[in-house]
Write a protein that binds this DNA or RNA. Structure first.
Lengths: 199, 199, 199, 199
DNA sequence: ATTTAAACGAGACGGTACGTCGCGTCTTTGT
DNA sequence: ACAAAGACGCGACGTACCGTCTCGTTTAAAT
């Protein structure tokens, strides 16, 4: 999620001495105050580092938060239990966690808008987080196809968007609760075509 | 999308003299610069009005944008063609338009984060736009139930979240294209349980 | 001494509400800490004003200090006692005061270098202070010519540079004391050609 | 111009390996950008040396520049032509060169203020440059006294301040041109009491 | 017609945070 | 011992934009 930047250490190698402390402090601040209210100076102080150090390694506030999220959100992997439905449910539960646990909850939407304005930055977040996350799901689906649980020509991308998108939208837009059975019901929809009924 | 505010004219009645010009200018600015980069002063100038006037009637930048969107996005209604599938597809196409046409595209995510931080503000946007939009869909679904096209105990809320959420997520997060057939394929998924195949 | 600037109120008219308090605070800070060590924020606080206000009206720290000096240093006028020598001594004593009283002492040299880097800024200081100061001296000299105390074709500019420059140089460069009789001895030099003797 | 410092090599002996390259680079940078705008890092790069090396040998930017000037400005000696007036004119011409040739022109005033803030530093510059320079002038004056050209009780210090100060002041403050005959006219003033006429 | 109140234009201001710059220090690694 | 490399602390600078405030003026309804 970096700005289109030449900062040397936004990606992986080297980076600042206290890289871990910084990213942790960033996620903490994010969880406490949300994206708009958190301050770069606050993150620096919390990490025991000077603000200038942050700007030496990340191009902007958005960039810093982007990489912190990419480094902080778990991407998987999803266990292979042999049961396609269970695996997908597990994956979706992970997604729900990612979008509802404090740091991401407040940060993701702001980031998407903030960084979408400069071309190429959103790509960074996608590469550093989404791609890994989605490839794990795709692997599960592939296993499901092998087992005959899923048609071979399924549109995996759309399937994932249905699962993750519904959850994302509930969380951020419609505000409907993400209750207990939601993961199962969505997986059943995309897997077996079970029209969702009222619980 | 108003702040929990006592501003007299955020809702409908009265309001500033140039209410229409202001809301239009807001949407224009939104479309051109995005939420973060647009400025209240810029909107005021564009509307031929002084900044103070905006703050007399809306509590904040977010509030202004929220109401502009609420007033600017079409909510429906959806025609009753007698064919449930066609009606839902038409509704979903409207949703896609709302989320991909320039103003909303750049504004929605920022807004959701910006306003979600102060409790109760997101409610305003939901009331002024989402509720109307969703009630139109619900009406279509009800007609579908009457026709026997949809089970009576369908979870309408979840159904709408699947439709709108998938589209929203593609647009903002995964970045996958919203190609031609997407509306039909999603409607077929929630209506007939047709697992989405590659086109 | 302003930057080549379009700030509306650097010169005279209007200006910020607390113009006087600001200029006074600037001179105070200058006297206490010197040019390099004083801070714009400190001036703002002292003046009971916000830093942004200063930058709304002056282009930079140097510009602010320049105008403060221009406004703070007395330029004259010099009384006409009827005695050319006495008048010139009085004028030179004023100059000594200007260059040795606390604010200017620490500020002038820094300013000269700081602002000389951007063409035209030094001009501002000259116009807002030096010109007035020098015209008073020139008037005295003119009266002296009328009285026959000074040759009509005297090089007034050079005469003033000898007087002020010697004082300035002692203060800033050579560090020799500006003792009691110095004004008289310099005036006698340029007026009567009396080679300076040890006191 | 050093800080009251214990740096081993600020004065003469030993010093860094590339002492000459460093001092030259310092003067170059000074001439190009002026004191404020030049950077220590830039000097280091230009000298093919690391910044830390500079700080091992000089206490500060000001100190470095001070010594570079002390080493870079010629102090004399002034030839003894047997003619007091000619000798003094030659000396003053050297002074004019020192204050108008590029490096010193931009550096001196800034330095004086920058270093005057820490007590004792200006002393360094005086010792490393001014004293030598002034002793050459004093020698010339002494010879002039021996020849009977100058009264024995002349105030040599003041005489030098008049000569150098006027030039310094023209260059930095009043901005009047340092035209051709200026050296002669000033020398004639202090030597013969010739009131300066318009050329 | 005149009064009066609401709305508006104008624009300075306080405030928060951002991102930048350059000095001077320090640690690590050679040589 | 000295030097290269380069991250870092630190203090300040100058900028942007938000939202508030005061004051004078227009507009329009009410008397």
């Amino acid at each position: 999620m970096p700005a289109a930047s030449t900062r040397p250490g936004e990606g992986d190698p080297a980076g600042p001495r206290d890289r871990h402390a910084i990213l942790t402090a960033t996620l903490d601040a994010l969880g406490e105050h949300g994206y708009q209210r958190m301050t770069v100076e606050g993150v620096a102080t919390r990490a025991g580092v000077h603000k200038a150090t942050l700007y030496r390694w990340w191009a902007s506030k958005g960039s810093l938060v982007g990489w912190a999220l990419g480094a902080g959100l778990p991407t998987g992997p999803v266990p292979d239990t042999g049961n396609t439905r269970d695996d997908l449910v597990a994956w979706l539960r992970g997604t729900i966690d990612n979008y509802t646990s404090t740091p991401a909850e407040s940060a993701l939407p702001a980031l998407l808008s903030d960084l979408a304005s400069e071309p190429g930055t959103l790509e960074g977040f996608r590469r550093s987080f989404l791609d890994a996350r989605r490839s794990h799901c795709a692997a599960t689906v592939t296993r499901g196809i092998a087992r005959g649980d899923i048609p071979a020509d399924v549109d995996v991308g759309l399937l994932m968007d249905v699962l993750a998108g519904t959850v994302f939208y509930r969380q951020l837009v419609s505000g409907e609760p993400l209750d207990e059975g939601i993961a199962e019901r969505l997986v059943d929809l995309v897997l077996a075509g079970t029209v969702p009924r009222l619980p």
